[in-house]
Structure formats: structure tokens, C-alpha cells
């Protein structure tokens, strides 16, 4: 136990010393070497997509190469661990998301990384709305009809998710809890693809997923959309009502990606990265490319705004996990 407590202490001390001496000289001319961005998921996924779109703009603004490093594994925890242990000099940046930063700490008590202590948030970069989808043969057409239908069949309706501790599962748990429904959870692995396929095939009834993985099927008439989890309707699907307007205010949630740096990174470096992100995300081409995939490009005005958002987000999911018992036993 003693050594375990000592390690973070030593880490913090080193960080303080390094912040005071090492990078101080380098701060003025930051960056003077390539910067690596740790993406905690495999290439081709949602986080990788966002990272590759902001990479050129950041690189141009900072005048240094920005290198992406995909460190996938253990629901993003492997990459998060690598980033948290990196030197806090601004040359290692972490692309976190709702799963790694807000959900995993409550889900995996043995996690050594504590995001709120080990990272300094800089800014959100992308926001992907969620959507409640169902197979075309499933009778309910909106959230209200779903509540009535499921109430008459308590415990009988099956919902899918891309994993036990996934955001999409928790979104359904909130909905279920507030509507007083008992539904049956069917977890999948390997991302949203296989779960969406089983909904299209009619093997499972419904699920929450990201707009990007469902929009083509909804437009093609193979799935129906019962609601979106944004505050406002999504421009690409103006006919689909929000969960909020259907009377489910707790189902306003999103799958976000954001940039963080290891704790101890000096303020001037943070400000410079923040400015680089703002610049990269103001490129209309980047915004349009993200929009095509159902992703909203967005930034925070200040790092503090992101910090406050994260505190709220983490608390919200911790509550949901506690109340619904979604934790692994």
C-alpha cells in the first residue's frame, strides 16, 4: 500500500520540479519538436476520425509536425494510461472522450489514472449526438409510444449496446429509470456495427447509438428513429424529435471528444494548444467533413469552461452508474 501511495506523490513531485525547471526554458519557443497526440482507439473509429481531421490545422498553427499515435485497448484505458504518464511539457496530448474521461473512472475502480487529477482539460473538439433507433417492424414510433409499449411488456423488450460500460448502454439505463421501464440488455462487442446489424435484422428491438452509425440506415428506411439526444433537432434529420421535447430532459447527452494534457503542463503551453484547436476547428472544410458524418465541430472558449463541463459530465455518469447498478460485479 505504502509504495502505491508513494508513486503518485513522486510523480507529482517530479512534475512540479520539471514544471519549475526543465520546460521553463522551452516554454517561450514551444513547440520546437514534433507533438504526439495519443488516440486511445484503433484507426478508423470515431476518435481517430476526429483526430485526423484536426491534425493538419493544428500542425500548421503550431509550426510543428503533429503525430497521431493509436494506443487502443481496455476501453481506451491503455492509451489514457500512456498519456497520463507522459512528461507534462505539451509534447504529449491526449484525445479523450466521454468513455475514457467521464465513464471509465466510475466503472473501473481499479483504474490507476484519475482523469480529474492526472489531466488538465483544454477544449472539447467534437460532439456526436445520440439517436434512439429501432427496427422497422417494432411498433412504437416515438419515445412516448415506446414507454406505453414497454410498460405493457415489462422485462420483455430487448435493447442492444456496444458494450456493458458503454455510453449508449447508460443512455438507455437513464431512459429506462426515468420512465419506470424494465428492459433487457443485450451487449455486443466490436463497436456499433454488429449491434446495428442485429437491429436491422430484427433480432433485437432497439438501442441508443451515435447518429453517424445510424443515419444512412434511417434515411434508407431500414431503421426508424425515435428521438435524438441533442437539445435541438439535428439539421440532417429535421423530422426526428429530440428526447427533450418528448419529455425526457435527462436524455440530453452526447458522445464528445476533447483534448487534454498531462497535469503539470505549463499555462502558456495550454493556451497555445487551445489556440491551435480553435484555429483547426474553424476551417470550414473540417467542419463540413465532420457534419457529413453527423459530428458537430465545437470548441470551448476557455480551458476552464471545458473543466467545468467535464466535472458535470463525470458526476452525471457516476450517478447513473450508481443508481442503475451498471457496474461490473
Amino acid at each position: 500500500m505504502k509504495t502505491k501511495q508513494l508513486i503518485p506523490l513522486l510523480g507529482a513531485l517530479t512534475a512540479v520540479v520539471m514544471a519549475a525547471t526543465g520546460p521553463a526554458a522551452g516554454q517561450a519557443n514551444y513547440p520546437n519538436q514534433p507533438i504526439r497526440v495519443i488516440v486511445p482507439f484503433a484507426p478508423g473509429g470515431a476518435s481517430d476520425f476526429v483526430a485526423r481531421l484536426i491534425q493538419p490545422g493544428m500542425s500548421q498553427f503550431l509550426g510543428q509536425q503533429v503525430v497521431l499515435e493509436n494506443r487502443a485497448g481496455a476501453a481506451g484505458n491503455v492509451g489514457m494510461d500512456v498519456a497520463a504518464r507522459a512528461a507534462p511539457d505539451g509534447y504529449t496530448i491526449f484525445l479523450g472522450n466521454v468513455g475514457t474521461i467521464s465513464i471509465n473512472p466510475s466503472l473501473y475502480p481499479e483504474l490507476t489514472v484519475k482523469p480529474e487529477k492526472d489531466f488538465i482539460p483544454i477544449s472539447i473538439v467534437a460532439d456526436t449526438p445520440g439517436i434512439l433507433i429501432a427496427g422497422t417492424k417494432f411498433p412504437p414510433n416515438n419515445a412516448k409510444e415506446l414507454v406505453d409499449y414497454a410498460k405493457a411488456r415489462q422485462g420483455k423488450v430487448n435493447f442492444a449496446s456496444p458494450g456493458s460500460g458503454s455510453l449508449n448502454r447508460l443512455e438507455m439505463e437513464i431512459f429506462r429509470m426515468n420512465a419506470g421501464l424494465d428492459m433487457n440488455h443485450v451487449p455486443y462487442k466490436g463497436g456499433a456495427g454488429p449491434a446495428v446489424a442485429d437491429i436491422i435484422g430484427g433480432h433485437v428491438e432497439l438501442m441508443f447509438t451515435t447518429i453517424s452509425s445510424a443515419i444512412q440506415h434511417v434515411k434508407g428506411g431500414r431503421l426508424k428513429a425515435l428521438g435524438v439526444t441533442m437539445k435541438e433537432r439535428v439539421p440532417a434529420m429535421p423530422d426526428v424529435p429530440t428526447m427533450l421535447e418528448q419529455g425526457f430532459p435527462a436524455n440530453v447527452s452526447s458522445s464528445w471528444q476533447g483534448v487534454l494534457v498531462p497535469a503539470g503542463t505549463p499555462r502558456p503551453v495550454i493556451d497555445k494548444v487551445h489556440a491551435a484547436l480553435k484555429e483547426a476547428l474553424s476551417d470550414p472544410k473540417v467542419v463540413a467533413r465532420m457534419a457529413e458524418a453527423g459530428v458537430i465541430a465545437t470548441t470551448n472558449k476557455t480551458p476552464e469552461e471545458f473543466k467545468a463541463y467535464l466535472a458535470e459530465d463525470a458526476k452525471k455518469w457516476a450517478d447513473v452508474i450508481k443508481k442503475t447498478g451498471a457496474k461490473p460485479e
Binding site: A42, D48, I200, Q216, H217, K219, R222
Partner: peptide
């Protein structure tokens, strides 16, 4: 399944979807 429905049948096909998305294309029946 990838080309006609936009559904990946294995890890390689999931990567292909990523490649198409970066090109601004969205695999699906369309």
C-alpha cells in the same frame, strides 16, 4: 455486407468504413 449495407463483417471491413468516412463517403445502401 460492407458494400451493400454499410455493415462491417470483420475488423478489416470496419477499417474500410473508416477509410471511406475520411473520404467523405458513407457506406450504406445508397
Amino acid at each position: 455486407p460492407l458494400l451493400t449495407l454499410g455493415l462491417p463483417s470483420n475488423a478489416v471491413m470496419a477499417l474500410m468504413i473508416g477509410a471511406l468516412m475520411m473520404q467523405g463517403l458513407h457506406p450504406g445502401p445508397q
